[in-house]
C-alpha cells in the first residue's frame, strides 16, 4: 500500500471569534497512489476547504495532514510553496493559466520554477500538451483557447512538475458536456496509463459516474466513502 495522502481528524473552523463556521469537521481520510476519487456533496459542504487543506493552501484548525509521508500541518508558508511545487498538481475551476504566457510557456513555468533545463522543459511541455490533445496549440495564449482547452492545458501543467497527485476543484464546472467528457477522458487515461492519482470535487453526476471512489461530504463530515 502506498499512501499519498493521510489526513487525521482534520477540522477547519472559519471565523473562530465571530460566527464560527465549521467547514470541515473531524475528517480522517487516506488516499493511495493511483486512486481516481470524486469529492461530492451539497454546496457549502466543505469540498473546497478540504481540497485546500490537502493541497497545503490552508492550515487546518486541528488535526494533521500528511502528504507523501511528510507532515505539512505546521509547515511555514515559504516551505509550503516549495512543497507544493514538488509534490502537488493543481487544476482550478477556471482561469488557471497565466494570461500573458502561451500554452507551452504556462506548462514550462512550473518546470522552470523547479529549475529544469530549457531543453527538458520544452520537450516535456510539448509532450504533455500533445497527450492532452493540444499539439497544435503550443503558441496560443489562454485567451485564444476555449474553456475546455484551457482546462486541458491546466492538466498538462499540473502533470509537468511530476507531482504525487493532482487536486482539481470542480474542474468541469465551467465546461459544456463535450468538453467535460473530453477532459474526463484525458484524466481517466492519465490515471490508467500513468497511474496518476486524481482527487476532484464535482456536482456533475456524469463526472461522478467515472470516478472509482466517491467521498460524500455533508456539513464538513464524511457521510459516505465508496468504491465503485
Amino acid at each position: 500500500m502506498n499512501e499519498v495522502i493521510k489526513i487525521t481528524d482534520v477540522s477547519k473552523i472559519y471565523n473562530p471569534e465571530a460566527i464560527p463556521v465549521k467547514a470541515v469537521d473531524g475528517v480522517t481520510l487516506t488516499v493511495e497512489a493511483g486512486e481516481f476519487t470524486a469529492l461530492v456533496g451539497p454546496s457549502g459542504s466543505g469540498k473546497t476547504t478540504l481540497l485546500n487543506l490537502i493541497g497545503g493552501l490552508d492550515h487546518p484548525t486541528s488535526g494533521t495532514v500528511e502528504i507523501a509521508g511528510t507532515n505539512i500541518t505546521t509547515m511555514r508558508e515559504n516551505a509550503l510553496i516549495d512543497f507544493r511545487l514538488r509534490h502537488i498538481g493543481f487544476v482550478f475551476q477556471a482561469y488557471n493559466l497565466v494570461p500573458v504566457l502561451s500554452a507551452q510557456e504556462n506548462v514550462e513555468l512550473v518546470m522552470l520554477l523547479q529549475g529544469k533545463s530549457a531543453k527538458e522543459r520544452s520537450d516535456r511541455a510539448k509532450e504533455l500538451l500533445a497527450s492532452v490533445g493540444l499539439p497544435d496549440k503550443l503558441d496560443k495564449r489562454p485567451s485564444e483557447l476555449s474553456g475546455g482547452q484551457q482546462q486541458r492545458v491546466a492538466v498538462a501543467r499540473a502533470l509537468a512538475s511530476k507531482p504525487g497527485f493532482i487536486l482539481a476543484d470542480e474542474p468541469t464546472a465551467n465546461l459544456d458536456s463535450v468538453s467535460t467528457s473530453n477532459l474526463l477522458d484525458i484524466m481517466t487515461r492519465l490515471n490508467k496509463e500513468n497511474n496518476m492519482t486524481f482527487i476532484f470535487s464535482t456536482h456533475d453526476q456524469r463526472v461522478i459516474d467515472k470516478a472509482r471512489r466517491v467521498i460524500k461530504l455533508v456539513d464538513g463530515k464524511i457521510e459516505s466513502d465508496s468504491r465503485q
Partner: peptide
C-alpha cells in the same frame, strides 16, 4: 490577485 494566488499555489515563491 487571482493570478498571483494561482502562481503561489503551483509553487512560485515570494521572492519570484
Amino acid at each position: 490577485q487571482r493570478e498571483f494566488g494561482i502562481l503561489m499555489a503551483i509553487g512560485m515563491n515570494k521572492p519570484r
